[in-house]
Simulated assay, not measured.
Amino acid sequence: MTAPASLSDICHEADIKTLVDSFYDKVNHDEQLGPTFNSMAQLYWPSHLLTMYDFWSSTLLGTMRFTGESITKHVALPLQGEHFQRWLNLFNATVEEKFAGPKAEEAKAKASGIAASFNPKSSRQWIPVS
């Protein structure tokens, strides 16, 4: 999908916050993912968002603020391939709505790798479904 020329790239901490807040608002209200995050994971959103700001700031801006590890916490959740695909679709849609440029493309590529790493049946070849 080609983004409108008026969108800027992900360049600043404020952009990371916009990306994370917008994406997790979608996740929180999603019929498929919302129950997983809110019920099964019993996620405490304020803390999770702070962690995600650090993660994406480290990943996209090189700030090295994220010092945790993410795989262990997610392995115990009852997630299937369709959950990972939905997560990726929502993430990509959020990026495309808010940003355009090399860092935006990098964010989508990183998210694809993350979704694939959490999916034990993945061939690491995720194709977003519109």
Rank of each mutant, 00 (worst) to 15 (best):
Met1Trp: 05
Thr2Arg: 10
Ala3Phe: 01
Ala3His: 00
Pro4Ser: 13
Pro4Gln: 07
Ser6Val: 09
Leu7Thr: 00
Ser8Thr: 15
Ile10Gln: 01
Cys11Ala: 14
Cys11Ser: 12
His12Met: 07
Ala14Asn: 14
Ala14His: 10
Asp15Trp: 04
Ile16Val: 13
Ile16Ser: 00
Ile16Ala: 01
Thr18Leu: 13
Tyr24Ser: 01
Asp30Val: 06
Gln32Asn: 09
Gly34Glu: 10
Thr36Leu: 14
Met40Thr: 15
Met40Trp: 06
Trp45Gln: 09
Pro46Tyr: 08
Ser47Tyr: 08
Leu50His: 10
Tyr53Gly: 09
Asp54Thr: 11
Thr59Met: 13
Gly62Pro: 06
Gly62Val: 04
Gly62Tyr: 05
Thr63Phe: 03
Phe66Lys: 09
Phe66Asn: 09
Gly68Thr: 11
His74Gly: 02
Ala76Gln: 11
Gln80Asp: 11
Glu82Asn: 14
Glu82Gln: 11
Phe84Arg: 05
Phe84Ser: 06
Gln85Cys: 07
Trp87Glu: 04
Ala93Lys: 10
Val95Ala: 06
Glu96Thr: 08
Phe99Asn: 01
Phe99His: 05
Ala100Arg: 13
Gly101Asp: 02
Pro102Lys: 14
Pro102Leu: 09
Pro102Thr: 14
Pro102Val: 10
Lys108Leu: 01
Ala109Lys: 14
Ser112Gly: 14
Gly113Ser: 10
Ala115Tyr: 02
Asn119Ser: 10
Pro120Ala: 05
Pro120Glu: 08
Lys121Gln: 14
Ser122Tyr: 02
Ser123Ala: 15
Ser123Asn: 15
Gln125Asn: 13
Pro128Gln: 13
Ser130Arg: 12
Ser130Ile: 04
